[in-house]
Amino acid sequence: MGIKIDGLLCTACMACELACGYHRDDAFALLSSCIVPYRGREKKNYLGVMLKEEDSLVAARPEGIEINRIGEEQDPDKEADASAKPMLLRESCDLCEDLDDGPLCIRVCPVDAISVE
């Protein structure tokens, strides 16, 4: 079971990031979230969602999902981009295992861009 993200549906509202931060810190904060909408290329309006899982980094781009196994070498010919190696020291997604109703990021997403598979 894992989190599935449709990067094209995302509106970059950051609700998932805040909910995940709350799950980690029991307060509202963004620094420890394992799910992060990528907002760094604002003028190009290129945005997606990054998720850190136990052994992989998921980049849910508008054009599709890319999964990078943590520790495996990336394709050297591929142009480096900001979602290639994010937030390695953050804790990985635990699917909010302590919550009966499932991951908070899914429940808080207003456009149903996040689901569980």
Binding site: A15, Y22, F28, A29, L31, P110
Partner: peptide
């Protein structure tokens, strides 16, 4: 800012927010 906002009644607050979203 990379601050943090504490919540007085976090569980109830968040549950109410989630219900609103739904």
């Amino acid at each position: 800012g990379m601050g943090l906002l504490e919540i007085a009644e976090p569980e109830d607050f968040v549950e109410d927010c989630l219900a609103l979203v739904s």
